[in-house]
Design a protein around this nucleic acid. Structure first.
Lengths: 199, 199
DNA sequence: CCTACCGATCGGTAGG
DNA sequence: CCTACCGATCGGTAGG
C-alpha cells in the first residue's frame, strides 16, 4: 500500500514547477504564466500541475513566495557577515545591483515586473506583493537607522527619502538593463548609490 | 451615394476607441486590453472595432502613439514657454511629477507599465516603446546640455548619469503612488529632483 | 459598421 | 499523477 510517489518526490516536482514558473513570470508576467503552457513545457498534464496549487491564484501566490526566497538568497543572505551599520547597508545595495546585473532571472527583477502588473488590481496576489515590498523596505529602514545611531549617516537623515531614492536607482537599473540592454547601467547605479551612501 | 458615416465621424469613433483603450491599458496592460472586452465597453462589435486597426497589434501600436500624444500634451507642451536651460529642465521635471501626481491615467504612467510588460519580448510594439523612451531621453539630454552651456550646471556633468537618476526618481514615484498609494511620494520626488538640479 | 462564425486556448473539474 | 471533458473567451475572418 505504499504511495506511488514519495513525499520527497512530490516536493521535488513542486519545486520544478515553481522554478520554471518563476522564469516564465519574470519575462512574461504572472498573468502570462498559463497553466496549459507551463504543463506543456514541464511534460505533465494541466490537472497534475494544478493538483499542487489548487487554482491559478494559488500558483501565483506560490511563485511570489519562491521569488522572495530567491531574492533573499541572492541579496540579504549574501551579506549576512557584513558589519552592522552603514557598511551593511552598502553591502546590501551592492548585492542588489549585482543581482540585477547578473540577470539571475531571464526577465530581470520579478518583483518589479509583478508589482507593475498588479498594482492596479486588487486581491491576494497584489496584497502578497505589497507585503513583500513592505518587508524589504523595513529591512532597509533598519540598516539606515542603525547607521544613523552609529553616527555614520547624519542624525537628521530623512529615512523614507533615502529609501525612496534607493528604490528609484534599482527600478532605473532594471529599466535600462531590460529595455535598453544598456551595459553601462550597473556602473550608473553604483555611482548613484555612492553619492547617497559614500564609500 | 454618400457614405453612411463621414470621415469626421470615423475619426471620432477611432479617438473614442483609443481613449478607452489607453485607460484600460494603463491599468491592466497592453495585453490585458482584449478586443472583446473593449468592444463590449464601447457598445460596438469586435469586427467594427478591428476595422479601424486591422489587428490587435495595430491597435496596440495606435495606443502607444496616443499615450505619447497625451504625455506630450501634459508635460513638454505645458512648459514650452519656460526659459531655456536649467529653468526649462526644472519645469519639465515639475510637469512630469505633476502629471504622475494628478493620475491623469487610472493605472499611472502608461509607458512604465507597457515598457515593463514588453521589455522581455520582441516585435513592433516593443520597438515602438523603446523608440518613444529614446526620444524622450533625447529631449532631456538637450535641456541638460543647454544648461551646461549656460554655465547653470557644472561643465563636467555626467549627462547620462543625470538622465539615469531623473528616470529613477520618476519610476519610484509611479511605484510608490500605484502600489503603496503613498501621498508623500510626490514631495519625495520633488526633493530628490531639487537635490539634483537645485532650485 | 453589423451578424455569424472559425480554431485555439483559457482556467478548471469529474473520475479514476 | 492521468484522460477526457466543460463553458467561456481569445484574435480574427467571411460576407454583407
Amino acid at each position: 500500500m505504499s504511495p506511488r510517489r514519495s513525499v520527497a518526490d512530490t516536493l521535488e516536482t513542486r519545486q520544478r514547477i515553481l522554478e520554471r514558473s518563476l522564469a516564465i513570470a519574470s519575462a512574461e508576467g504572472l498573468e502570462g504564466l498559463t497553466i496549459g503552457r507551463l504543463a506543456d513545457e514541464l511534460g505533465m498534464s494541466k490537472a497534475g500541475l494544478l493538483g499542487h496549487f489548487g487554482t491559478k491564484e494559488g500558483l501565483q501566490l506560490a511563485v511570489v513566495d519562491e521569488a522572495a526566497a530567491v531574492f533573499s538568497r541572492e541579496v540579504p543572505e549574501r551579506v549576512k557577515q557584513a558589519p552592522s551599520g552603514l557598511r551593511h547597508l552598502r553591502a546590501v545595495c551592492e548585492a542588489w545591483v549585482s543581482y540585477l546585473e547578473r540577470e539571475v532571472l531571464p526577465g530581470g527583477c520579478f518583483f518589479t515586473a509583478a508589482t507593475t502588473e498588479f498594482d492596479g488590481r486588487d486581491g491576494r496576489v497584489r496584497d502578497a506583493l505589497a507585503g513583500m515590498n513592505a518587508l524589504w523596505r523595513r529591512d532597509l529602514r533598519i540598516h539606515i537607522r542603525r547607521a544613523m545611531s552609529f553616527g555614520e549617516l547624519p542624525g537628521d537623515t530623512d529615512v523614507d527619502q533615502l529609501i525612496y531614492e534607493i528604490v528609484g536607482i534599482m527600478l532605473a537599473l532594471n529599466h535600462f538593463l531590460q529595455l535598453e540592454h544598456d551595459a553601462a547601467a550597473p556602473a550608473r547605479a553604483r555611482k548613484a548609490i555612492r553619492r547617497l551612501l559614500g564609500g
